[in-house]
Simulated assay, not measured.
Amino acid sequence: MNDAVKNHWYPVGLLSDLPDQRETLLLGEPIDLGRRDGTVWVANGAGEHLPTVERFGHLWTSLGKPNRDLFDIPEANSPGRRLVDVGSVKVKCSPLRAVENFLDIAHFPFVHTDILGAEPHTEVEKYSVTVREDVDEVWATQVKFYQPQAAKSAEGGITTEYMYRVATPTATVLYKTCPPRPGEWDVIALFVQPLTEEWCEVWPWMALYDDDSTMAEMVSFQQLIFMQDRSILENQVPRKLPLDPGMELPTRADLTSVVYRRWLKRIGYFYGAQRVAA
């Protein structure tokens, strides 16, 4: 495992539900974590304490020595937003597959039928993807898609505008049309903990403007969406994310995935990736 993998920050627990001690895996290595006397801690198998960050309602850590702070989501500090800890789901797939699925627009009508998409509205309009070199993040903008129910707060179908942001290889943020507040963005993030190369724990998190839904309703809505994705993720072959362009043929709608895979290769992040055809 190279430093390009070890030196990133990874989510390992919810701050609102942190026990005194819990065992888990990170990048195939056992770690312990918990809260003791009001202070959070994470230790590796040798008992050595690891660096920690508390942000977005989650505890983050690294097996290496991160050369930059954990990314920020400024909208999380906007007055009136409701910050939603969705919980976590373990998925038998590559952590990179989990991120890429989150970036995939074309599957909405077929996997999230009558919620995030519906036939015959299946066309993905042309959009833009770039790597923002100043922050080394992948951004997809000008993404538009018709959705029967874009959010728990939505009433009726609307054409939803999206922006996708890949902040780290295993953390991605979605900005989308906010039905109750035109001109604002709802924020939905997917933080992925790589347990192993083919098994991950996914921690969704949201920052929403929604004064009508209960917290339980917002959590339930997002959990429904991800559980629909889970069966697709666990049946993808190969389990690891192919980085060889010849292994899976992309379409125009897959532009974000294409740029994401190229970016992973450029930064040398291969944990959970299949680099050559088997």
Rank of each mutant, 00 (worst) to 15 (best):
G38Y: 04
R35F: 07
W41S: 06
R36K: 12
G38T: 09
G57E: 09
T39Q: 13
L33W: 08
E54M: 06
R36A: 09
A46D: 14
L33G: 02
G38E: 10
H49L: 15
D32C: 09
N44E: 13
T39K: 12
L50F: 04
R36H: 10
T52D: 03
P30D: 08
L33S: 05
V42D: 02
L33T: 02
F56I: 00
E54Q: 15
V42R: 05
T52F: 00
E48I: 02
N44K: 09
V40L: 00
G34M: 01
A43F: 07
R35G: 12
T52C: 09
D32N: 14
D32I: 04
V53K: 12
R35Y: 00
L59C: 08
V42N: 02
G47E: 13
D32T: 13
A46Q: 14
T52Q: 05
W41C: 09
L50K: 02
F56G: 02
G34N: 02
P30V: 07
R55L: 05
G38L: 08
F56D: 12
G45A: 14
G34F: 01
H58L: 15
E54Y: 07
T52L: 01
R55E: 13
E54P: 07
G34V: 03
P51G: 13
R55G: 04
G45F: 10
H49P: 02
G38V: 11
